Simulated scan of single mutants.
Amino acid sequence: MEVQPGTPTRAIAVIGDSRVDGMGSTPGTDRRWTDVLARRPAARGGQALCVVNQGISGNRMLTDGIGTAALARFDRDVLATPGLGHVVIAVGNDLVFSFAPRTEESAGFLSMFPGSPVGVDDIVAAHLQLAARARAHGVKVHAVTIAPYGGSEMYSAEGEKAREQVNAWIRTSGAFDGVLDFDAVWRDPAEPTRIRGDLHMGDSLHGSDAGCAALAESVDLSLFD
């Protein structure tokens, strides 16, 4: 649904997977991290910001599966957003699924995600392509670090190494106008490969209401000025 705002408004479009889509938050209560983030600028006054959630559970950047891949749907779902000022890239499933252990328990789920496994270089290239396309459209682009998922059935040591490499690149490459370090917000100081127990829904993968709120409250609103 599109509405005509009564005051100058800038849109933030977030493209992502289940952690953006809101899996783990209470359904129907607008407690996804994007919902909480959208309420914060209104509370401080100033220019209105609307946050457009373009998360699809199971979505990937490079390969179709559950939903069209982020690279392919970017123009339609993100760049076509009226009043677009900022893009946030928050897709981590490519690495999670590529390195997930293939067991009897996970085989059925992983069969929904066809295509060849991808590595760190592939994820970096995909981020750079999305960033270039966003800037060509005249908007700023921000990247989200991939949060921990140790303890989930998708976890592997190889996947963890790849996650750490991608996160290090996101933080230090200078490729983005801003970084939302959700890994730092969620990771357990005692076990950095895992989400803090009070911030996930019980699956060690998706945030609870408290976890979503913690992500939203960590975002520096000055990034969107």
Rank of each mutant, 00 (worst) to 15 (best):
G202T: 02
R60T: 02
A214W: 12
D209C: 06
T29C: 03
N167H: 14
R133P: 12
A70I: 05
G150H: 13
G58D: 05
G24T: 01
Q4I: 12
D198K: 00
S116L: 10
R44V: 03
A214F: 13
D122H: 08
L71F: 12
D220W: 13
G202K: 00
G28S: 03
N59T: 01
F176Y: 15
R187E: 12
F109H: 05
T81V: 08
L205Q: 03
V51L: 03
P101R: 00
F97W: 04
A48G: 03
P114H: 01
G28P: 04
H86M: 02
W169R: 07
A147D: 15
Q54W: 03
N93S: 05
R194Y: 06
S204K: 02
G108Q: 03
V141W: 11
M112N: 11
A42I: 00
D183F: 12
S111P: 04
A143S: 13
I146A: 13
V88S: 03
G92Q: 02
Y155C: 11
E2R: 05
D122W: 07
E2T: 10
H137N: 14
D122C: 07
G174E: 15
R133V: 09
M112S: 12
P41C: 00
V20A: 09
T63D: 11
R19C: 13
R194W: 08
F182Q: 08
M201Q: 06
A90I: 02
A175E: 15
I12V: 15
E104L: 06
S222Q: 15
R163E: 14
G174V: 09
A213K: 06
N93K: 00
G119S: 07
Y149C: 15
Q129Y: 07
A43W: 02
A216L: 12
M112Q: 09
E217H: 08
P114L: 01
Q165N: 12
S152T: 14
P101Q: 00
A13M: 03
A13C: 08
F74Y: 14
G197R: 01
T26Q: 04
M23I: 13
G83K: 01
M61Y: 07
L221V: 10
G67K: 03
D198V: 02
R73M: 09
A42F: 02
D220L: 10
A134I: 10
F176A: 11
T172G: 13
D122Q: 06
D17W: 08
V3S: 09
V120L: 05
A216D: 14
L84D: 10
T145F: 14
R19Y: 12
D220A: 14
L223S: 12
A184T: 07
A42L: 07
R171V: 14
G24K: 00
T29D: 04
E191V: 03
A157S: 15
T193N: 09
V124P: 10
G108L: 04
N59P: 04
A213I: 05
R76F: 06
G119N: 08
A136V: 05
H86A: 04
D225P: 11
G174S: 12
D75A: 11
E105K: 01
